[in-house]
Design a protein around this nucleic acid. Structure first.
Lengths: 337, 337
DNA sequence: CTGAAAGCGCTAACAG
DNA sequence: CTGTTAGCGCTTTCAG
């Protein structure tokens, strides 16, 4: 089943390859009658354009690379879904690269994608600092948008959730439902999710209780750390545990329940991201829902802009406001009592 | 920053493009001295081969398409991770397509990938029946391996977990820990996960209790169904609820706990797949762990074989045996009593 | 409006 | 061992 080429279609429709190309690409006006003949011939032969040839000629592959730290991070599948859908809708294909949280592997994957002539790159950097060089080098060669995380200022366009706004929503909600002794279980590091959420808690929790900003424990973004943090913080008897992400919150909730604490009667627990597990815990975990579809839409819009004719312009850093999803883990204490 | 081509390297190293090509591709013997000069020139100019040109010439893009129903299905991220790693290790790139569980979208994505001249396709079909035509058509054009699910006999090579073996492990474990009144919460449909697990329960549970095969409720693979099923089955007071996947098991566990049942003291709960949430439930859910890394390795091996020189041979259907992961949800009753 | 022809960057005969 | 040459399939001047 030899592939059908433009020449075959040209022969079958009795005109030149140039004409066929013009008809099929709609590049230039073509006689209505010729056009019909060409289309008929193409259809009957089952012609399919060869993207490789097109890419060579046009210097554009219609492909974007999506580089992410770990597809198994439960927050990413939803993002990947929205991104691929948005890009497919524009006729682009997505080359996926998982880096296993390793900046070295990340640099290799980015190199490979550039070699494959992706038109643009969407990157969720693995590490705030160690991803920087590879990302900056790539951004010098193709349009690049940073997603979810950044890697230092001035590297590339970026789109992410407004972590401060999200944390503020949590604190407001806790205040409104009568909590007065919050504590925070966060993560070390300078990545935006860690640093910004930490800072927002520090800035906002003082309104509930002057000592609240100090009731903070830092570890990593894991269930195990959430469990461990409870053992450090519970003796201070907080009435709310604000967690930097949902995995931590799941660990916190589990450990509190093991210790016999009443959630939410005695203590509320909140997360961040709204991964699927957050809704499945019992009670469901109140959390900050990232606007995943919008993040994806904005990222692709930014890319499309950079790929367009007037793609110049200053670097952009976009922050999208999240929503609060209230579930059982933070139900007002008196409702339950 | 004009791209550096073979010609530039040839000029810089004082030899022909053919020679440069041979050095860089290692296709044919080349003088050691020339080779060194070429490599030096390539490095200093920052030469990067143009994959599009190569693809056009070689009629191979070094790319495989990965088509899956829903990346947000919690079992797939781990599989995608292993697949991309395995393929990257062979120097291939992965074009990802998410179909949103829609066979029509799936057919479109497959068409697009074929147009982009993927060398091969890895497909997790969305629907046993309605995916069949598109998959069969694609399989006629490029090597194609079906993963996790099949879509009718004789369509293409396939790799999947041995569902019957997994279910047998569960039943053996329940028998060994003294359970005698199991019931089954499964899913309708003819997809392998649904049908084979259902059949294996029907075949194996009779050994525990002659009436066991009849204590079966069928819905879909969701948490909501798991919850609903409990309301239908609990009055029969089974001492074990065997679920067709982990999502169902999570729903079952939640609902049982809400009804005040003691898990595992009074009733055991088991799942299938070992998605991350299974380990995070409280108690952890005993489940059948799919050999994800091996599934990915076998699938890529099969593809590599088909892409190789001697890629002919009969169609292959490979079944991999899973492991049982015992967690708290099925701890022996007397241990707890 | 249409055709002829020149490549995009690379590889593989085919000669030397 | 190395250079010359002819395309892979497509788009795009440039003529007509």
């Amino acid at each position: 089943m030899a592939d059908v080429t433009l020449r075959d279609v040209a022969r079958a429709s009795g005109c030149s390859v140039a004409t066929v190309s013009r008809v099929l690409a709609g590049t230039r006006p073509v006689g209505a009658d010729t056009a019909r003949r060409v289309r008929a011939a193409a259809a009957s032969l089952g012609y399919r354009p060869n993207h490789a040839a097109r890419a060579l000629r046009n210097r554009a592959t219609g492909t974007v690379g999506l580089v992410l730290p770990q597809i198994t991070n439960p927050f990413y599948p939803a993002l990947v879904r929205e991104l691929t859908h948005a890009l497919h809708a524009e006729g682009r294909a997505v080359l996926l690269a998982d880096c296993d949280d390793d900046p070295v592997a990340e640099a290799e994957r980015i190199e490979d994608l550039l070699g494959r002539r992706v038109d643009a790159l969407l990157v969720i950097p693995a590490d705030e600092r160690r991803s920087r060089d590879a990302v900056a080098a790539a951004a010098a060669r193709v349009p690049l948008v940073l997603l979810d995380r950044r890697c230092g200022p001035g590297v590339a366009d970026s789109v992410a959730v407004d972590n401060a706004a999200g944390m503020a929503l949590v604190l407001e909600h806790l205040a409104a439902t009568g909590r007065r002794r919050p504590c925070f279980v966060g993560a070390h590091g300078t990545a935006s999710a860690a640093a910004e959420r930490r800072a927002a808690y520090a800035a906002g929790s003082g309104a509930l209780d002057a000592a609240a900003p100090e009731r903070t424990a830092l570890g990593d973004f894991s269930v195990a750390w959430g469990r461990a943090a409870v053992d450090a913080l519970w003796e201070a008897r907080p009435d709310a545990v604000v967690c930097a992400n949902d995995l931590i919150a799941i660990g916190v909730l589990q450990r509190l329940q093991e210790l016999g604490a009443d959630v939410p009667g005695e203590v509320a627990v909140t997360g961040f991201d709204d991964i699927p597990m957050a809704g499945l815990a019992a009670p469901g975990i109140t959390t900050v829902r990232q606007p995943v579809a919008e993040l994806a839409a904005e990222a692709t819009r930014l890319l499309a802009h950079r790929l367009g004719a007037d793609g110049a312009g200053p670097q952009r850093a976009l922050r999208l406001a999240p929503d609060l999803v209230v579930r059982g883990s933070s139900a007002a204490p008196h409702v339950r009592a």
